[in-house]
Design a protein around this nucleic acid. Structure first.
Lengths: 232, 232
DNA sequence: CGCTCTATTGATAAACCTCAAATACAGTGG
DNA sequence: CCACTGTATTTGAGGTTTATCAATAGAGCG
């Protein structure tokens, strides 16, 4: 079981500090605070600093957002080597982004003053971070487009493919999405309900496109899913 | 008719160059390319540079995204003093963001090499841009949440309120949204169809919440709309 | 084995889209 | 000033999609 090479692990860590020497890199790591989070620990609801940066060294974070009625959407899963930046341009936000560990997770955190200092000292860090954030905005925009224009089953297909590319492990019968994913999680990630997800996955399981269990998804026919997701 | 003080005009221009002297600011402006766009001119479909920055000096841009079937969503309107940054991390994207002027528009454009140089020279520019982009990602995430969790009429209400805050002009009978907005535009901005928008606006017009005409919306009772948008 | 959490499935209802047709509006040229 | 034309808007009818509710089944754990 090795990670499929869709996306190299610890890519973003490299990207954030790209252009710096090893010595500088080591120094910057030391300025951050390392933490180990138990599973289901909330890392932040809302940073009280304008920018604070988190890199995941082990485990995985789930970024979510709640609306007034308590309905949740999953914005992203942050895996090993990836980072997330919390913002709080205004204080007392009502519906901020929440970062929660979904398994035991090691992170390195830089607070706002440290980040600001590092970015002023090494402009490349700000530029690198900008590149990462721009990729993120691209991702949200794509998902916004999807949720605005596509049927729910297409969106579920795209969601599985997206998760597969970012957290897929090769197993004998296909590609296992290495995140504990309940039907509710997939629904929150696709903008639908757990019932619709359940019905849809059942249908795909009958077709042999996936194989699933309790909080476990294996994509057995990725090409079929891709084709389906692009169906008119 | 003066701009309501929800958001100061030319705010972002100031933000991007915050921390620099007037002399430096003048110099940086000169490094950009100034253009005047006729109405309905496409400024970019896809930059072939990783980051290129555009500031609007007069007029307004519309940022849109198309899916495979040609369905369009409006990501944002970019008004005077605001900026947008085009990205093309990968080449040959199929569904990039499109920026189009919706009236005669003056812009200043910096290409990727220039932006990179400016950001390295003045780290504050990269940091400022980061702040702006983080606000943008916050905005898209909010709208993503809305489209995933709210009814279509609530989303239309929020869309009108959002546009009102960013492009509202006080008129005798309320606040005029100073953008030519067809029902189709509002639909593309809210993730619905022009028919649903038309029905919804008709209902609100009967209630006295808005007053509308061909490509023209005046919000006559903003509070009612706010209350409605927060209704369960 | 019993408890709890997750998943499945059917029935029903609500929300929303699609299509069609009619109407209103703005601009243009006679 | 008026008819004409092209676009925008309205509205109704009907159908599809998807959510909701309810009840049952299954999986994992002590």
């Amino acid at each position: 079981m090795d990670t499929i090479p869709y996306k190299s692990v610890s890519l973003h860590k490299a990207v954030l500090f790209k252009g710096l020497t090893s010595q500088q890199y080591e120094d910057l790591l030391k300025r951050g605070l390392s933490k180990t989070l138990q599973s289901k620990t909330i890392l932040f609801h809302q940073g009280d600093s304008a920018i604070s940066c988190v890199i995941v060294n082990r485990g995985r974070l789930k970024l979510t957002k709640l609306n007034e009625q308590g309905k949740e959407v999953i914005l992203r899963y942050i895996g090993i080597g990836e980072l997330t930046a919390a913002i709080a341009v205004l204080k007392d936000r009502d519906y901020p982004v929440t970062a929660e560990s979904i398994e035991e997770t090691d992170v390195t955190v830089w607070d706002k003053p440290t980040m600001m200092q590092m970015m002023r000292e090494y402009p490349d860090i700000a530029i690198n971070l900008l590149g990462i954030i721009l990729e993120r905005i691209e991702d949200v925009q794509n998902r916004y487009l999807e949720v605005c224009t596509e049927r729910v089953d297409q969106r579920i297909a795209r969601s599985l493919l997206r998760l597969m590319r970012r957290a897929g492990l090769k197993v004998p019968d296909g590609i296992h999405i290495n995140i504990p994913l309940s039907r509710q999680n997939i629904a929150d990630y696709s903008g639908t309900t757990l019932y619709t997800v359940s019905r849809t996955l059942s249908a795909w399981e009958k077709k042999g496109w996936i194989s699933s269990g309790r909080e476990r998804i294996v994509v057995t026919d990725p090409h079929a899913l891709v084709r389906f997701s692009e169906t008119v």
